[in-house]
Design a protein around this nucleic acid. Sequence first.
DNA 1: TGCCGAGTAGACAAATCGGTCTACTTTTAG
DNA 2: CTAAAAGTAGACCGATTTGTCTACTCGGCA
Lengths: 180, 180
Amino acid sequence: MDKRTHIILTALSLFYQKGIHSVGINEIISVAGVAKKTMYHHFVSKDELLLACLSERHNRFLNWLTQATSKQTTIEEFKVALISCHEAWFNSKVTELGDFNGCLFINTAAEFADPANPINQACKEHKMAVQQLIKQRLSACNNMESSQLGSYSHYLMTLVEGMICQAKLVGIKQFPHLKQ
Amino acid sequence: MDKRTHIILTALSLFYQKGIHSVGINEIISVAGVAKKTMYHHFVSKDELLLACLSERHNRFLNWLTQATSKQTTIEEFKVALISCHEAWFNSKVTELGDFNGCLFINTAAEFADPANPINQACKEHKMAVQQLIKQRLSACNNMESSQLGSYSHYLMTLVEGMICQAKLVGIKQFPHLKQ
DNA sequence: TGCCGAGTAGACAAATCGGTCTACTTTTAG
DNA sequence: CTAAAAGTAGACCGATTTGTCTACTCGGCA
């Protein structure tokens, strides 16, 4: 495998499981099995590596969510599919997302609170992309009234974010009552 | 003011605005204007200080939420009050909660992911206490059916958690559509 | 053949981290 | 009044941080 990709995947796993500031460069290169110079040859700084990790996770997550919500034709079906696929994630049944430890972007934004920081901005952009995907999926449902598209997509986004937080903090992994 | 309390309030503000690992002991004592020995006289370690901050924030938050949701008699009124008081928080209109920067407990749990860590446990206990308060408030509504008390209180908790995340990450501060 | 980019191992630098300690001053309670 | 408790300033410690640098190896390509 490409060294650069290998470093990104190793760092992503460590960052996601332990938090950004809890993982040092030395640990990343040690686990990845590469020299420090190799890492700094591909990434000018830890922040740049983190940005690459966020980008990788963003692509992975959106691809998964896009595929997991591709077969529904009504609002109700979509809502159930959206909740169900997240439950699968919470239970670490989605191999490409790894062992569940909350949302990497929520976690990262907690450590980089400054809105002017590109890292914080990347987290925000990810959430807006997810919101956009939900809206697009909803608009394709044959019983969706366009006048309520905005508010209902926001509502579903709020639900999903809340589910993620509860799954991480208090360990709730299933939300049957949300499916009505 | 009591030195110990002063240190806690200073550290709490810094931790909340910048994140735990981004704030060092030297910065805390510098801003608080106390000697390092004074801090280590009251707290054996940074972790102990953090636990005291979490406890302070927990009390402050629960007192505020308890008061902000004390006058409702129906489910619908309670739901609106719950959402409205959070909107006020998001817009930093609640002086005792300070400038809004998301939920301290969600943010802290992101940096201390190990469930065996007392810091992580304190975060979890806070969320369970909030959930309990919502349930208790709901049970006092005169149109609440006890058979749905559990699922509806969980639903409201999910909504609130989602609102907090969206307010922090993408800057949404108002949720009129959730009030129906 | 010779060269160059990518790789390795690891020493090193400068800064910062949490935490300890000394020496001294101020406050407070009996 | 006195003595203990609580406070101050800041030097210091060992560990760790991100990042740089040297010296060297290896493989592919013109």
